[in-house]
């Protein structure tokens, strides 16, 4: 009985970790360029509602996914314009994006509430791997394509960030925009790209919810996942590879808060766990020497203006 619960938890945690991972990967890139975007929740839910609307109208879930990614990108660009070009406060801009997204998605999705999606993304079963005893069925049957795509994406983004010239350019812009500028790198252009990419990823994360995970639309269906993705970005110490494990862990907490476990542990306590763990992680890093090796990008949240010290 208990084994079944554990395997079930693993399977559901993986499904639950998918939107967290996609959104967090986007935010990791955004923040590695030196910009904070607190609008993840808003970009996700807009991705979810637009994805559902397009999916319902066309019956093509992957086209819907593409449109959702585009909507996320546009919202990311709006944040980039406000915080990079206009030099306005990044935190206010990001928060507004979240509030705006939650409101507009409610309005757009009003007539869709309660409708099931006609053509949802299909579940996949990985041949061979699913035949591994115990873990095989849990991890490799009845999952969505986006789950595996997210894992592959994380590995690609990790390699790109650390072992390519473009990845180095991105990191330098977030660590020392002045050094990057001196080296002839267009700092703000790179930041624009990174923030737009963060929006794209959040749009995909949202669309996963309404097109695959629970193929329907409900107001506020992201339910704080955007905020968990932000905590995840920090908990993973801005590293795409670590984000895989961290998203799985946070996904497990999220899932457990809906299970029978809530008769033993208050579900609120379980949903709190990602934030508590993030605070603990930040404290541990700040106490040790690790701050320099693992801490936030040095120019995070600081707009770059040439000529200022």
């Amino acid at each position: 009985m208990e084994l079944e619960l554990i395997l079930n938890t693993i399977a559901r945690a993986l499904a639950f970790s998918t939107p967290l991972l996609w959104a967090a990967l986007g935010e990791i890139y955004t923040e590695r360029s030196g910009v904070v975007n607190l609008g993840v929740e808003g970009m996700m839910i807009m991705g979810a509602v637009v994805g559902f609307m397009v999916g319902q109208a066309t019956g093509l879930p992957y086209l819907a996914l593409l449109v959702a990614a585009l909507v996320g990108t546009l919202m990311g660009l709006a944040h980039a314009f406000i915080s990079i070009t206009l030099n306005a406060n990044q935190f206010v801009s990001g928060l507004s994006l979240t509030i705006f997204g939650l409101g507009l998605s409610g309005l757009l999705g009003r007539s869709y509430v309660g409708q099931p999606l006609n053509v949802a993304m299909k579940s996949v079963t990985v041949p061979f791997l699913s035949e591994i005893p115990l873990l095989g069925p849990a991890l490799f049957t009845d999952q969505k394509l986006l789950t595996y795509a997210g894992l592959i994406m994380a590995i690609i983004l990790w390699f790109f960030l650390n072992y390519t010239r473009w990845g180095m350019t991105l990191r330098s812009v977030g660590e020392s925009p002045k050094a990057a500028d001196t080296a002839g790198i267009p700092v703000n252009q790179v930041r624009y790209l990174a923030v737009a990419f963060g929006g794209l990823m959040a749009g995909v994360a949202g669309a996963y919810l309404s097109l695959a995970y629970r193929p329907s639309w409900g107001e506020g269906m992201t339910n704080g996942m955007g905020w968990i993705a932000l905590a995840l970005t920090i908990f993973a110490l801005w590293d795409p590879l670590r984000a895989i494990g961290a998203s799985f862990l946070f996904g497990a907490f999220f899932y457990l808060s809906f299970t029978k476990l809530q008769t033993v542990i208050a579900p609120e306590l379980l949903t709190m766990m990602p934030y508590i763990m993030t605070i603990v992680a930040l404290t541990v890093i700040a106490l040790g020497q690790g701050k320099r090796a693992f801490g936030a990008p040095e120019a995070l949240g600081i707009p770059y203006q040439r000529g200022e010290r």
Partner: peptide, 12 residues
């Protein structure tokens, strides 16, 4: 960039 390696800083 203080968190980059020496070589990365020079390559930039």
């Amino acid at each position: 960039a203080r968190r980059h390696s020496v070589a990365e800083n020079i390559a930039l």
